[in-house]
Amino acid sequence: MTTYAALLRGINVGGNKKLPMAELRALMTGLGYDSVQTYLQSGQAAFASAHGDAGSLAAELTGAIEERFGFSVDVLVRDHAYLKAVVENCPFPAAELAGRQLHATYFSEPVTAERYADIDPAVHLPEEFRLGDRVLYLYAPDGLGRSKLAEALSRPRVNKGLIATTRNWNTVVKLVELTTPGA
């Protein structure tokens, strides 16, 4: 049995794509997933599954949500080992920062620095970003809502062809905790 987190993009934001967490848990349990837990209302679920891989589980969950709720939601699924590696490989001093200052954007596939070549890092200092394995780490000392770098990084032309979803560091760490086997 492998433990995973499902990251749903753009639900329960501004009254759009309303997806109650109790209904998401019931849907996931109905799909045969074990130990289903949700975290916050913004689209995180931890679960265990003995079948499939991250890609097939994401496709299955995407289809089930569309069938049940009538709207499409991008879903990324990542296993515990990957989530733990994201935390362990953070290039910023996470322990010294407030959770609102550090974010991880998870991607559907690997990204290269060339994708961000038009963004001049010096213009956005003290904000910074670094790339990892299908993840972008963003240090935004004044928070994501005020971040000009986050705005530049999230432009559609920059992320064309990708599913991308961002979580603050508190959520990143909580997902590791929730997907720890036996937790």
Rank of each mutant, 00 (worst) to 15 (best):
V111F: 02
G14H: 07
E128C: 08
F69M: 10
E177G: 09
G70C: 11
R155I: 03
A22N: 11
H124A: 06
Y106C: 08
A113Y: 08
K18A: 13
G30C: 12
G132N: 10
G99I: 01
A95F: 00
V173A: 14
L76F: 05
A117L: 10
T112L: 07
K160T: 13
R25T: 15
S56G: 09
L125E: 15
M1A: 15
E96Q: 12
S147D: 05
T2F: 12
I11D: 02
P91T: 07
C90P: 00
G132R: 08
G182L: 11
P156Y: 00
L138S: 03
K84W: 01
E67A: 15
P141A: 11
G10F: 09
H80Q: 10
F47K: 06
T171K: 06
K160N: 05
H124N: 10
G14D: 07
R115H: 08
V13Q: 09
L24I: 07
L76M: 12
R25V: 15
N168A: 09
S35V: 12
E109Y: 02
L27C: 10
R155K: 14
V172F: 01
H124S: 04
S42K: 03
P156I: 01
D120A: 13
M28A: 15
D34L: 15
Q37K: 14
V135S: 11
P126Y: 11
G30P: 06
T165A: 05
E66P: 01
M21D: 11
T105S: 15
G55Q: 13
V73F: 04
A85I: 01
L175S: 05
L102M: 09
L83R: 02
T38H: 05
K160C: 06
G161H: 04
P91F: 07
G30F: 09
L27Y: 03
S49E: 04
A122W: 02
A48T: 09
E88V: 01
V173F: 00
L138D: 05
Y4A: 10
